[in-house]
Nucleic acid binder design. Structure first.
Lengths: 225, 225
DNA sequence: GTCTATAGGTGGATAGAC
DNA sequence: GTCTATCCACCTATAGAC
């Protein structure tokens, strides 16, 4: 990351890399200071304490992500194209910014998303709501199958890439490489695959499914609260 | 978990809950001893040190999981039914055993799957290989679309449930509940949804896709090493 | 096998000089 | 704003009594 920055920015950059790699508890203030090339005491001067630093980091990272995601879900193109573009963007974003999925998963595991509540709510109201809208639009137009709950389908569709990027070491083993994980080429290919997979899941089968075929399409819905 | 067990079993049970909830570093030997109702020093007596305890825990948990998974991918039924059953089993397993996806994700993030290498390799050779075989079988039979890479499709198909269960707090926000996450009913409904979603993704569109329609089906493949 | 006591080390955080 | 010194709490691990 950028080296010629003011202290707070350098601290945030160093913290981002370390928190993503090691997690909150395993990362020490001294490590962050050393990675930032700064005296660890400065962290207290600028951020108060370790948890406030962590919180501000998430605010910066996820806030930017939620905003960009919302912009990226365009409503001016057919639903299938918009969704394909969204997945492609996810793939790019995670290749360029590998700490993002890791920070997100760690935050959810360690704090039940408490520090990211605001940004996830923002995401829910923005990009996620629009994605649900796109799916419903496609369902009404008859190009998407109607037996999938739109919100569940939206969750499934945005799951694939974060999971793959978090699981890279395990995916590496499954794909017959070491724990090094898939190559960058494989990760890019997976991004293209995911877009095709998601669209295939959503698309209505041409000719339509036989009405009473309960075995091949489980009707599901989000139970009301 | 069971209370009338010998010391090592009780320690493993307590460690499983705590490592899943808090992670390796944030969990202390004293917490484990206290949760097990035993003197913390016994952990050293039975397991040597904290990391060995952790390693043995993963060995127990993932070993059992990999073995059961392999059994569960039956080859005697049509591919679509076998895959539906696999997803349904994943859903059940994670509802009954919520620590499993958390331990897996934490292990991958914290140690790059180092402590679970053996079991993941076992999974790759067993359940995962069979799942790939099922997908290829369906592709040859013409019921699954051929433009998806079988290994990528297998990864995508088994991704949905672990992701959902790890992300429960965030999914709760997206589904309009608090950080408490989805209800059990919603989680069960998601399991049914995931099976339908996966089958829909894999199934060939009736009537077949137009040959030159590159926009709607990105041809993808795992690049060779 | 189980428990107490404690050594040895490290981490978060602050006081205060410059 | 930056750095040094340091306090205190707590954690892993062991020694050794019972």
């Amino acid at each position: 990351m950028s080296d010629d920055l003011e202290a707070p920015g350098r601290i945030l950059d160093a913290a981002e890399a370390l928190f993503a790699k090691q997690g909150f508890t395993a990362t020490t203030i001294k490590q962050i200071g050393s990675a930032a090339g700064l005296n660890p005491a400065l962290i207290y001067y600028y951020f108060g304490d370790k948890e406030k630093l962590y919180h501000e980091l998430l605010h910066r990272t996820f806030g930017l992500f939620a905003a960009t995601a919302a912009e990226r879900v365009s409503a001016d193109v057919p639903p299938a194209d918009a969704i394909r573009a969204l997945i492609a963007w996810q793939s790019e974003a995670m290749l360029e910014h590998p700490t993002l999925p890791k920070l997100l998963v760690r935050e959810v595991l360690d704090w039940e998303a408490e520090h990211a509540r605001e940004e996830i709510t923002q995401l829910a109201a923005g990009a996620f709501a629009r994605l649900c809208g796109l799916i419903e639009e496609g369902q009404k137009a008859g190009i998407f199958r109607r037996d999938l709950d739109a919100r569940f389908a939206a969750i499934s569709s945005i799951s694939l890439l974060p999971y793959f990027h978090v699981f890279r070491p395990a995916a590496g083993i499954l794909l017959g490489r070491g724990t090094e994980g898939p190559t960058r080429e494989q990760a890019e290919a997976y991004g293209r695959h995911a877009a095709a997979y998601v669209i295939s899941a959503l698309e209505a089968k041409r000719g339509g499914a036989p009405p009473g075929d309960a075995s091949s399409s489980d009707r599901d819905a989000v139970p009301k609260d």
